[in-house]
């Protein structure tokens, strides 16, 4: 099997952070899978690149947890697409994830740049 090309200026996503990024992205409104991937890439100024294939298992897992819901809609280009949106439960989850993330970043920062 071919070895995957080495990542260059991209950062591999930390375990578990993809969930948070998806929830965060959906805060702005419902979106389909492809859009979510684009949004993550764009809002991280192309640094965070989600391998598209891994997006869908994550989306379906979140849906099963009840943090997001999905429905089929027609896009501007008159195509059928599955749109995901944040649920109330998901909003709570996002808040929890955000505060956890903040604590972790602060902790790592203290380790890396001791005052």
């Amino acid at each position: 099997m071919a070895q995957p090309e080495p990542y260059q200026n991209r950062i591999e996503l930390l375990q578990g952070t993809l969930d948070m990024l998806i929830l965060r992205t959906l805060q702005w409104g419902p979106c389909h899978g492809h859009g979510i991937g684009l949004a993550i890439r764009a809002s991280s100024a192309d640094v965070l690149q989600v391998e598209h294939g891994s997006l869908y298992p994550a989306l379906h897992r979140l849906r099963r947890e009840g943090w997001i819901a999905s429905e089929w809609k027609i896009t501007q280009n008159k195509q059928r697409a599955r749109y995901y949106r944040l649920t109330a439960k998901g909003r709570k989850r996002l808040a929890a994830e955000e505060s956890r993330w903040d604590r972790m970043v602060a902790a790592i920062a203290r380790v890396m740049r001791p005052a």
Partner: peptide, 8 residues
Amino acid sequence: LDEEIRFH
């Protein structure tokens, strides 16, 4: 799921 991936 197939349709979703195709769309993507």
